[in-house]
Nucleic acid binder design. Structure first.
Lengths: 186, 186
DNA sequence: TAGTATACCGGACAGTATGTACGGTAACTT
DNA sequence: AAGTTACCGTACATACTGTCCGGTATACTA
């Protein structure tokens, strides 16, 4: 990719992230982005079709990092030395908190539909074959929905409280409340 | 209230509901509403400040009916003769399905943030002092968040599947998956 | 280093939505 | 019958979106 393109793309992403920390996604306009990124209007549209497209592409980049190594790479990350659900989720939570200024938590907390749909798809894939045993009482797709939305909300809750709780604790609480087996007992 | 006002108000609500069954809330415009309701632009704004305000006021009217009698009026509704969590929720689900063409389910399924926030507030009030016992392991406000979002998602799931399942079944599944005591066992 | 490709600029533009203003007309109230 | 109030419709200012295009600067390439 041309150096100019890389530079512009980064400027857009930076401006976008910055604005997201100041207001809601829905209220950010393309005009604000190009002003902040200090680029021309047509340049923006040469890179992204719409604002939603920008969000999509940011999601792709972000999630590529976040989900990387959650289950397959136990050596590079401390948490994944623990292959339990609790351990994997704690690992995931760390990434979500640290990536892009916790923008993921913010979008989830806002309930931004476009982002949430994207995120939920990935989570459904992740949780698909790992539902808690108790779920045999409940239609599988309903259980999957509940597990996924629960995890989203847990992240939103975490974000709104400034990521105070330890990721391990949050993972533990979540796992318990959804009915997985845990090793720790209070 | 003046008959003209009632008439106009109803025309707006009807047009709005109608449009909501045809597309997403977000994509409905004031222009469409006034055209469908066959009223003048300024008339709309004499009744509602914005489209969101219209949604708000519709919520107030709708929820007044939906939550009415869930816990306090055991004689007029069959379900509330059963004061268990499961029974109350089944009752609630019936109302949500039948009110305004299931518009509530639609909005929840869409993840419309404005509506969802409104709805969640009411649910938090309802579930506030009825959390499952298992929740003693988990911070109360987190548990409340999980319980509320779970219920929302259950409704969304129900809506997307055309309200096929019986409300009693859905209530049962939900209650079980969240860890309340149930009377029925499979 | 010269030549060519291409990304960017910036300004203009059409299209669409929002929310306000105001004089005229019809409906309700007393 | 007189006065009040809601509605109509049109026009208007504002704002955002997405496209277009000629000119300029930067980057690859031979």
């Amino acid at each position: 990719m041309d150096r100019r393109q890389r530079k512009t793309r980064k400027a857009i992403f930076d401006a976008f992230e910055q604005l997201m920390n100041e207001e809601h996604y829905a209220s950010v306009t393309v005009g604000q982005i190009i002003e902040r990124a200090d680029i021309g209007r047509s340049t923006f549209y040469a890179h992204f079709a719409t604002k939603d497209d920008l969000l999509d592409q940011m999601c792709v980049e972000m999630f590529a990092h976040v989900f990387e190594g959650v289950e397959t790479d136990p050596h590079t990350h401390a948490h994944t030395q623990d292959p339990t659900m609790e351990g994997m989720l704690a690992h995931l939570l760390c990434h979500l908190r640290d990536n892009h200024d916790g923008i993921c938590g913010k979008l989830v907390a806002e309930g931004e539909p476009h982002f949430t749909a994207h995120f939920r798809t990935l989570l459904e894939e992740f949780f698909g074959d790992r539902l808690p045993e108790r779920s045999s009482w409940v239609p599988q797709d309903l259980m999957l929905t509940l597990v996924v939305s629960g995890f989203c909300q847990a992240i939103g809750w975490w974000h709104e409280r400034g990521y105070e709780a330890a990721p391990e604790d949050l993972a533990h609480w979540y796992v318990r409340s959804m009915g997985w087996q845990t090793k720790r007992h209070a």
